[in-house]
Every structure is written in C-alpha cells, then in structure tokens.
Amino acid sequence: MHTYNTSRRRIRPAAGIGLTAAALIAVAGCSPDESPGGTTADATSTSGSATTSAPASTAHNEADVEFTSTMIGHHRQAVMMAELVEGRTDNAELIALASTIEKAQDAEIEQMEDRLESWGEPGDDHGDMGHGDMGSRDMGHDGHSAMPGMLTPDQMAALRDARGGEFDRLWLEGMIRHHEGAIAMADAVLADGVNPATKALAQEVKRTQQAEIDQMKGMLGQS
C-alpha cells in the first residue's frame, strides 16, 4: 500500500503539469479573433491605426518644399551679413545681435537641409556661392519664386566697404528688410503648407525675426 500511495502522490503533480501545459498550448493556438477579450485583435487594430497615422507627420506639399529650399538661401545671406560685422563696428549691441542671428540661422539651415533630404528633395543650390554672388541670386532651386528682402550685389558691396556708424546704419536697414522678407515667406507657407514641422519653423521665424526687427528699429531710433 505504501508503494502504491507513494507512486500516486508522485504521479498527481505530473498530471497537473500536463494539464497546465495543454491549456497553454490551447490558448497559444487560438486565432486572433478567439483570444481572450480580443486582446490580440485589439493590439493589431491599434498597430494598424499607428501605422496609418504615421505619414501625417511627414506629409508635405510643394509649398513646404519651396519654403524650405528657398529659406536656406535666404538664411545664408543673413549669415554672411552677420559675418561682415567683425572688424567693421564697435557697436556692442549690434555685434551681439549679429552673433545671435548667425547661430540661430545656421542651426535652422541644418534643420531645413535635413528635412529636404528626408523628403528626397534636392538641396538649395547656393552652397558654393561667394559673398558677392549671393546677392545676385534671388531665386530658389529649380526656379522657385523670388526671395523677398535679399540684398543686391551693390548693397552687399557697400556693406563690405562701410565702417563705423555708416556700417551700422546700412547693416541694420538691410537686416530689417531681410527679416521682413523672411516673415513674408513664413506667412506664405503657413497659409499653403501642410507639414507640421515646417509650419512650426515658420512660426518660430516670425516670432524671433519680428522681435529682432523691433530691436533693430530701436537701434536706428525708429518707432
């Protein structure tokens, strides 16, 4: 009897394990529609929704491409203007403002170049242009619309030749016009673009450059 009972006690746990394993196999073998509470089906549905909504953040149209490609060239001239400040003025406020503009717009250029690449679009074609040539071109890549506020070659030459108070006046007046042009470009993409990141950048351009316009007008003694 002892031997029999002992063997029974040893067998029961094994039988329980077998039943548990069988139950797990049965659950694993369920189709998605038969899973408890529809968990698998729900997960599949959620995943499908995420996949469907993902392209919305990268969707873009021609207005987004035009703004991004032309604003790269527009920003590059502002950076060139900022680089002319060194050695031509002792105006501490203007020097600090030029440094701020150069750093901000360099960062935005990189951001826009990365965005064009992610879209599979060609980059802006001003990259190899010298300081004199940049002023002579007011068109974006592939003949896009003119970029408002760009300085002409003569205006850039006059800026390079000026010093002291004359330089300050020409630089501030030129940068005000340049910023006003950027704001007009930002307004256009906010009206016609669809890409969220591009429109967010346009809003940032409007906010920062309008504040800088107000500052520069104050420096010129304008209301």
Rank of each mutant, 00 (worst) to 15 (best):
R12A: 15
G16S: 10
T20L: 14
T20Y: 11
G29V: 02
P32K: 00
S35V: 05
G37T: 01
T39D: 01
T40P: 02
T40W: 12
S45Q: 15
T46V: 06
S47K: 09
S49G: 07
T52A: 10
S53M: 08
P55M: 01
A56R: 09
E66I: 14
F67P: 07
F67L: 05
T68W: 07
T70Q: 12
I72T: 05
H75E: 03
H75A: 05
M80E: 15
L84P: 00
D90V: 00
D90G: 12
N91K: 04
A92D: 14
E93W: 07
E93F: 09
I95A: 14
L97A: 06
A98D: 08
S99L: 07
K103A: 14
K103W: 04
Q105F: 11
E108P: 01
I109V: 10
Q111K: 04
E113K: 03
E121V: 06
G127E: 14
G127I: 06
G130F: 09
G130A: 09
D133E: 15
G135W: 01
G135Y: 06
S136R: 07
D138L: 10
S145L: 06
S145W: 03
A146W: 07
A146D: 15
M147N: 04
L151S: 10
T152M: 08
T152V: 11
M156I: 09
A157M: 04
L159Y: 00
L159W: 00
D161Y: 05
E166L: 07
D168W: 00
D187E: 15
A188M: 10
D192S: 13
V194R: 01
P196C: 03
P196R: 10
A200Q: 12
E204Q: 14
K206R: 14
Q215A: 02
K217G: 05
G218I: 00
G221Q: 02
